[in-house]
Design a protein around this nucleic acid. Structure first.
Lengths: 117, 117
DNA sequence: CGGTATCCCCATTGATACTG
DNA sequence: CAGTATCAATGGGGATACCG
């Protein structure tokens, strides 16, 4: 009944667990883009929406809530009419910058190597 | 008609494009996990499936095809019965290792800081 | 402005069975 | 073993309308 264990399987499992943790929080089309939109400072709902492009209000709202739960960003409501709400990265959210830089680098590499000149 | 442009918007757009490129190839629940499964050497279809856990044959098959198209991995069929097929990373696939290391680091950080002790 | 509510479609994914 | 075929479910995500 025991599976054949190959060399490397243990390292692989060890690598897999934290990556799964990270993916659970970050995966999907929008979350990293939202982080990027907030990289250079606070932004309001519509500003984030415009910056990213192609995201619906519903999705943006849902993603922002989820990311707030995960303590990646902070939501501040100002008492005004019409309402003003600002989003900004927490320290934990900012800790994703290295990852995003890597993703950008790889994206550039990929475009050069595969997507063609 | 012109939108208000904030400082940082241009940098943001510049960062966004290559990240979108990267996400187009990598996003989703499975692709990075597949890369990881192949990090320590060639593996067969069922081995990848077992390593990752929770992925259906259909999904794995679909993802592998797509990743082959994107030149992230190489598929080799051996003439045998029952069939033997091996998958391995290309150089381009291996170039994702830094990114994955970062993701692992961040996943560990996230578990410590947010998911609790 | 910053959302929520509702309706609805269709792509993604899973489960199961089957084949070379 | 390495998938494919088929069916079914789920939910991602758009469109529109509406509210505080």
């Amino acid at each position: 009944m025991d599976q054949k264990i190959k060399p490397g399987d243990k390292e692989c499992a060890l690598l897999l667990r934290p990556v799964k943790d990270a993916l659970e929080v970050l995966s999907g089309k929008w979350k990293l883009q939202i982080i990027i939109a907030l990289t250079f400072g606070k932004k309001r709902f519509k500003e984030i929406s415009r910056e990213i492009g192609g995201i619906s209000d519903k999705m943006l709202s849902k993603e922002l809530k989820e990311m707030e739960r995960h303590q990646l960003l902070l939501r501040t409501v100002y008492d005004a009419f019409p309402p003003v709400v600002e989003y900004e990265l927490t320290a934990h959210g900012k800790s994703l910058h290295k990852l995003i830089d890597n993703l950008r680098d790889w994206g550039q590499l990929h475009r050069k190597k595969i997507l063609g000149k």
